[in-house]
Design a protein around this nucleic acid. Structure first.
Length: 493
RNA sequence: UCCCCGAUAGCUCAAUGGUAGAGCGACCGGCUGUUAACCGGUAGGUUCUAGGUUCGAGUCCUAGUCGGGGAGCCA
């Protein structure tokens, strides 16, 4: 008797299927009990909804107390509760009831067709009992929440998105580069970093100034967890042409929002001999590919999100794939926002001025109200962007000040999902920017080398994987789209 | 980090400063090829923690812890 996954059974039941278990075939399935219902009909029946996590729907196992298929342990099986693990030998049959096309009829008592593997200690206090639970509560039982409909679907979608991402880049000749998690370069710029050290925190070695002497530390200097793989991946880009990195990223910011994590995953492609336009096109093509793959390959889970998490989700996503993204300069975005404000179409808490960073409310107005679709904002004022972004020629977009070739992709419901730019490939301009921002040239020696030895125009972006998850599923809290969220005061599991 | 809100049964929530309640879940029984099942019953409480006010505190006050929403930082 062969052990099959429940998804194979459902797949084989579709009219066009040519492989997989057929009606009348006897198979073994293994999984966890979702619900048990008992009936006195036909001399005693019970229905066990069994899930092995391979697809959204559980399969119904029918057990009989009387007749040729009677189970010797029927009474025990009928007492199973949510969460118990079992193995079932049974025959695949067309269902006599409504609600499912096929089901498993547990075979007769001789072989012990339903083998109970793991009981649930105390059903009264089982944390994910068969009832509705809030996401807030389920976060407190993150080790068990994946057994629920929602988190099972999230886990499968997360996997499918990861695989789709690798496929997308592989098909286009990108190489996957494993950039380091630990960095001692201390020149990544963005945000507060987590320290990595093996020094005794109670009595660390001191230098002459009384500070901590990191020359005695593991790496001989101060080290941190990475906040971005970009600077490293740029080096590989300048030899392999098209590369990407995908890995965890760490920010020690005390951020308490539904969109921020201390540990999150980021996809960062980098392309050589390319400009900002190429970068924006790649970003758009990438997002559309991910969504199309989900709609094609995870239709059961997506149907659930559409019905229970965000009504109209699937239509919204199909629309995202069908229409070109709206591209516009930051300068134009500011003009639209100012006009909306003066005409009374929008009320903003914060003022809009060229040269200032856009607030969340501004970004959301553009993507959710004004254009009602993903928006790519390009060419930001240089003073609000990082040193490595390429200086635009004066007069770009008729802007009232200097701009850099940066772009953000904004999507409805989430806001900023991608941040990217064309990189400054001219050493003299890069050095001027470093000086302007008070950064020490020497710290960036290897990054500057890329501009000394065969520099190329190149560009890249970072896509927040969890934000993509939120956009694709309609889930509203970033802590619910990663298995074990890391946030301030939150690292239990 | 800032602003606002919250913490009571396994879960979701009620309860004028005066005996601690419901729904769901669990358990027992009834009914049914059942499927968010339905009907009846039973059990289940250090009201987040530490102080304080009061004859009396789930309720009022102070501090703390944790959680949620929004903001900033960003992905």
């Amino acid at each position: 008797m062969s052990w099959v996954r429940i998804c194979e059974i459902f797949k084989a039941a579709s009219p066009e299927a040519t492989t997989g278990p057929r009606l009348g075939e006897t198979v073994t399935i293994k999984g966890w009990v979702r619900t048990v219902r008992e009936s006195k009909a036909d001399g005693g029946l019970c229905f066990v909804a069994l899930s092995d996590g391979t697809c959204f729907d559980p399969i119904q196992v029918v057990c009989k107390a009387a007749g040729p298929e009677a189970l010797a342990n029927f009474a025990e099986v009928a007492k199973l509760t949510t969460g118990c693990s079992v193995e079932v030998d049974g025959t695949l049959v067309a269902s006599q009831g409504k609600g499912q096309a096929v089901e498993i009829l547990a075979v007769g008592s001789k072989g012990g067709a339903v083998r109970i593997i793991g009981q649930v200690d105390n059903p009264d206090t089982y944390p994910v009992s068969n009832k509705r639970h809030t996401f807030e509560y389920l976060r407190e039982v993150a080790h068990l929440r994946v057994r629920t409909n929602t988190f099972g679907a999230v886990a499968r979608v997360r996997h499918t998105l990861s695989m789709a991402m690798h496929r997308f880049y592989d098909q286009r000749g990108f190489f996957y580069v494993h950039t380091p998690i630990i960095t001692a370069s201390d020149c990544e710029g963005a945000g507060q970093m987590f320290k990595v050290s093996t020094l005794d925190m109670l009595k660390p070695p001191r230098n002459e100034q009384g500070g901590i002497d990191h020359s005695h530390d593991f790496f001989g200097k101060e080290a941190h967890l990475t906040v971005s793989g970009q600077l490293n991946v740029e080096t590989y880009c300048q030899a392999l042409s098209r590369v990407y990195t995908f890995g965890p990223t760490f920010r020690a910011e005390n951020s308490n929002t539904s969109r921020h994590l201390a540990e999150f995953w980021m996809i960062e492609p980098e392309i050589a001999f390319a400009d900002l336009r190429d970068d924006a096109n790649l970003a758009e093509e990438f997002i559309k590919f991910l969504i199309q793959t989900l709609l094609d390959e995870r239709s059961d889970d997506m149907k659930f999100f559409d019905e229970r998490i965000e009504k109209g989700l699937i239509d919204r996503l199909k629309d995202v794939v069908a229409k070109p993204f709206r591209h516009l300069p930051y300068t134009e975005g500011v003009r639209i926002l100012k006009e909306a404000q003066s005409k009374g179409d929008a009320k903003f808490e914060f003022g809009v001025d060229w040269g200032k960073d856009l607030q969340s409310e501004h970004e959301r107005y553009l993507t959710e109200k004004h254009f009602k679709q993903p928006v790519v904002l390009m060419n930001y004022p240089k003073q609000i962007k990082a040193f490595y972004m390429r200086m635009n020629p004066p007069g770009t977009d008729n802007a009232p000040g200097d701009t850099v070739a940066a772009m953000d992709v904004l999507v409805p419901g989430v806001g900023e999902i991608i941040g990217g730019s064309q990189r400054e490939e001219r050493l003299d301009v890069l050095d001027a920017r470093l000086a302007e921002m008070g950064l020490n040239k020497a710290d960036y020696w290897w990054y500057r080398d890329l501009r000394r030895y065969g520099t190329t125009p190149h560009a890249g972006f970072g896509l927040g994987f969890e934000r993509m998850m939120m956009f694709a599923t309609g889930m509203q809290n970033v802590r619910d789209v990663i298995p074990f969220p890391r946030a301030p005061k939150q690292a239990e599991f």
